[in-house]
């Protein structure tokens, strides 16, 4: 690898250097080739111990990280809040310091509060990968999304991406906006205005409330999951009315005279954000996203671990 990775942690897209992004993509290209071999494992992170700290429920992100770690031959420790001493009142810093005292090298953390990984980075020396912090950032998801688009379009320059749904409670949306713009794409958000932050246009994104117009405009539609569990108050009357306005069906897609790429960070509520015939159509790259997720996470882990060796 000629260029060197600059970041010490992956806390968010916000503080990620453009060179680092390119390096992650190049490295992911290599790993994608690796995981399609008959023997999918490489010894790159032998002797590196990684803890997956999940203070919030997650299935696919945790599995994706765990698989990435195992494919790199790292030793993996899984920690989830429900089975932990967090419920006994131990602080985040104490929990992590206790784990690190057992000689763990890297931390992958999901946490329900914005900024939790940045807060942790002030207290520990181990590398931290933010696997989602509240409604703030989810950098590896954005990296795998951009990587998946790039795979289809060649470049992100001037690609038009609309992010549809609950923007207000979404960490995927913010990380995606920041990364796509950095790579030259144009970004629009679409959804009920109650789920769109008032000042989001100041980030340089367009706001559209009509899904038909949004689909006419875009090359790629990233359909966010409607996260009922993140909404402490009601932002739209019923799920039925949401689907009426923002659900994407095959029928709706056919009114647009181009082939839009359909993405979804998962897990899909079939029949809510998108209908089954859209999810399973050849326009959908949802399963490519899942596959690329492992390659991207391998790349991030590998590059950050390399940083450790030279530090």
């Amino acid at each position: 690898m000629s260029a060197s990775f600059k970041a010490h942690h992956l806390l968010g897209i916000k503080d990620l250097h453009l060179d680092d992004i390119q390096l992650i993509f190049q490295t992911a290209d290599n790993f994608k080739e690796v995981i399609n071999r008959p023997i999918k494992k490489v010894p790159s992170l032998r002797d590196v111990t990684i803890v997956n700290l999940f203070f919030e429920n997650s299935t696919r992100t945790r599995i994706s990280f765990e698989l990435a770690e195992k494919r790199l031959s790292a030793d993996v420790l899984n920690f989830s809040a429900s089975a932990s001493s967090v419920s006994k009142g131990e602080t985040l810093v104490d929990t992590v310091k206790n784990i690190l005292a057992m000689k763990v090298d890297m931390v992958v953390m999901r946490h329900p509060m914005a900024g939790a990984s940045m807060f942790l980075s002030r207290h520990i020396h181990a590398q931290i990968i933010n696997a989602g912090d509240g409604t703030h950032e989810h950098p590896t998801q954005a990296l795998l999304d951009a990587y998946s688009i790039r795979e289809k379009t060649g470049s992100l320059k001037n690609v038009k991406v609309v992010i549809v749904g609950d923007i207000l409670h979404s960490r995927v949306a913010l990380s995606n906006i920041l990364l796509l713009q950095r790579l030259g794409a144009k970004v629009m958000v679409c959804g009920p205005l109650t789920l769109i932050p008032k000042y989001i246009e100041e980030l340089g994104v367009k706001v559209e409330t009509d899904i038909r117009k949004a689909l006419q405009w875009c090359d790629v539609a990233n359909m966010l999951r409607i996260q009922m569990e993140r909404q402490d108050i009601r932002y739209f009357p019923t799920l039925r009315e949401y689907i009426l306005q923002y659900g994407v069906s095959k029928q709706l897609l056919e009114t647009v005279n181009k082939k839009i790429i359909i993405m979804h960070p998962g897990p899909i509520n079939r029949g809510v954000e998108i209908t089954s015939d859209v999810a399973d159509s050849n326009q959908s790259i949802i399963l490519d996203q899942v596959e690329n997720g492992v390659a991207i996470r391998m790349a991030v882990l590998y590059l950050l671990a390399g940083k450790k060796a030279t530090a």
């Binding site: 900024g115 912090d133 509240g134 409604t135 207000l168 960490r171 913010l174 932050p197 000042y199 100041e202």
Partner: peptide
């Protein structure tokens, strides 16, 4: 506070 910064920092702002 609610502003473009609350969007960037991922928190619901207080207007």
């Amino acid at each position: 506070n609610e502003s473009v910064n609350s969007v960037l920092y991922g928190m619901k702002g207080s207007p």
